[in-house]
Computed example of a mutant assay.
Amino acid sequence: MKKILSSALAKVKDRFPTIEDFMVAVNPDRQLKICEQPETCYFGNSPTLASLNVIYGRGAAEAWLLPEVQEACLFMGIKEMPDNYQAAKLVRIIAQQYGYLNVDEVQLFFFYFCSARYRHFYNTFDPSIIILSLRDFLRDRSRAYEEREQREREREREEWEKNAITHEEYLRLKENQVL
């Protein structure tokens, strides 16, 4: 039985027919460009890690995540790269526990991680440093969502005030049977 993809996921599949095509286009080098607009990363419509598995099959999110982790390790200059077991388990944990993050957010996280915004390695790879840093990133992400909601509430309040009338005017309109 063939799965039917939502229109948004089908668009991703049409644009990038295979996970390899997606990985070529959405690679770690892209971090430098998307970090310029964090709001777009948080609130854009890039596919989530979980949706990569829906589009391309089980393990697609992990396949996409692996170069992100490897690039961060290379950039940080750790003496020994993670072994296959560490890397595989780390990307599996991220894909499973944080599957709701979209790929732009994940790339923004790795950009922030490499720019020493969060925790860092001390010459050796420690997967918990990435996981703990990801939790720090989620706090920043939550703040971005709260600020956006606050701006939206403020905009709605300003719009409401444009159309609002005073109590006195309400009473006058009611008295004149306009209401």
Rank of each mutant, 00 (worst) to 15 (best):
H167C: 10
Y100I: 09
E39C: 01
L138V: 02
I131K: 05
T124K: 08
T124G: 01
F22M: 03
I93K: 09
Y122I: 11
G99M: 00
L66K: 15
N123L: 11
L171N: 11
S133Q: 03
Q97N: 14
A25Y: 07
Q37L: 09
K89P: 01
Q86D: 13
Q70A: 12
L49S: 04
R155G: 04
R15Y: 00
V69K: 07
I78M: 05
D140C: 08
F121T: 04
G57D: 07
A144W: 06
A72Y: 09
E158M: 11
R143M: 10
N123A: 11
A144P: 03
F75S: 13
A164T: 08
K11F: 05
D140G: 01
M76I: 05
R172P: 02
I129F: 02
K33G: 03
V26L: 05
D83F: 00
E39H: 07
I94F: 01
P47N: 01
S133P: 04
K174W: 10
E154T: 11
Y112A: 08
P28M: 09
M76L: 15
C41I: 00
K33V: 14
S6N: 11
V106P: 02
N84S: 13
R157T: 08
R92G: 11
I78D: 05
L5V: 08
T18D: 06
R157P: 04
N163Q: 14
T18C: 08
Y145P: 02
R153D: 07
M76D: 13
M1Y: 09
L108Q: 04
Q70N: 13
T48S: 15
F111T: 02
A60K: 03
